[in-house]
Amino acid sequence: MNGVIVASTTAEKSKKRNPGESKGFVEEMRFVAMRLHTKDQAKEGEKEVKQPEEKTVAKWEPSVDGYLKFLVDSKLVYDTLEKIVQEPAYPSYAEFRNTGLERSASLAKDLEWFKEQGHTIPEPSSPGLTYAQYLTELSEKDPQAFICHFYNIYFAHSAGGRMIGKKVAQKILNNKELEFYKWDGDLSQLLQNVRDKLNKVAEEWIREEKDHCLEETEKSFKFSGQILRLVLS
């Protein structure tokens, strides 16, 4: 009798689906990411505000120097991601070449603009260097975890990142819109194309690999948060 109960419980567990699972793996990643947002950052957010960068952007006091540090470290991360997919350690990464979401060239133009305004462009700092090294190492040995970071970096920038860019521009850049926040073509379509590719790649993974990818989300937020905090330094 006990054996029957155990078997039925196991069957129930395997039937129990993750939030969003029926819509594809990207929706599962989105659900996990949303839980790590605060209510200020997203309607579905559940996290309490603890770090300075988690406060509502209206309360931020950004400086041009801090923002430049953020842009330089962000560029290093995007350079690293673009290099990884161009020279893939795993064939699946090649799916993510030339998606239209790339930010490296845009950031290079923005940094050039700041230079023309007389600002000194800093060298990359610890948050960017640490994250870039982590992504490089991860991409060589742990494709599922790497894909988690790839998704969260690009998709977060297209949503909350744009909102932050707009608010910071209002406060310190006289509303100038940087290239970092512009895309060639319809952004929603570019994102959908990448969603489709991510879902396709994840179809090859077993459930444990998918769960392993989802578990990496918190680290992705931690690394990105450290870079974002530079805006306020």
Rank of each mutant, 00 (worst) to 15 (best):
G3L: 15
I5P: 05
V6M: 15
V6Q: 13
A11H: 12
R17G: 05
S22P: 05
V26R: 06
V26W: 12
V26Y: 13
A33M: 11
M34K: 09
R35F: 10
G45F: 13
E48M: 13
V49L: 03
K50S: 12
K50W: 09
W60H: 00
P62I: 00
S63R: 00
D65S: 10
D65P: 02
Y67A: 00
Y67C: 00
K75C: 11
K75P: 07
D79L: 08
Y90S: 00
P91W: 11
Y93D: 02
R97C: 08
L101W: 02
E102F: 08
R103T: 06
S106H: 13
K109G: 03
L111F: 06
F114N: 01
F114L: 04
E116K: 13
G118I: 03
H119G: 10
I121S: 07
P122R: 06
P127G: 02
T130S: 13
Y131V: 00
Q133G: 03
L135H: 01
L138H: 08
S139A: 15
S139T: 05
D142R: 06
Q144T: 15
A145R: 11
I147N: 06
Y151V: 02
F155C: 01
G161M: 05
R162I: 14
M163A: 15
I164H: 09
N174W: 12
L187E: 02
L190R: 03
R195S: 11
R195I: 12
L198P: 00
L198M: 09
A202V: 02
E203G: 02
E204N: 08
E208T: 09
C213W: 02
L214W: 04
S220E: 03
F221N: 07
F223Y: 14
I227P: 01
L228D: 03
L230V: 01
V231Y: 02
V231R: 02
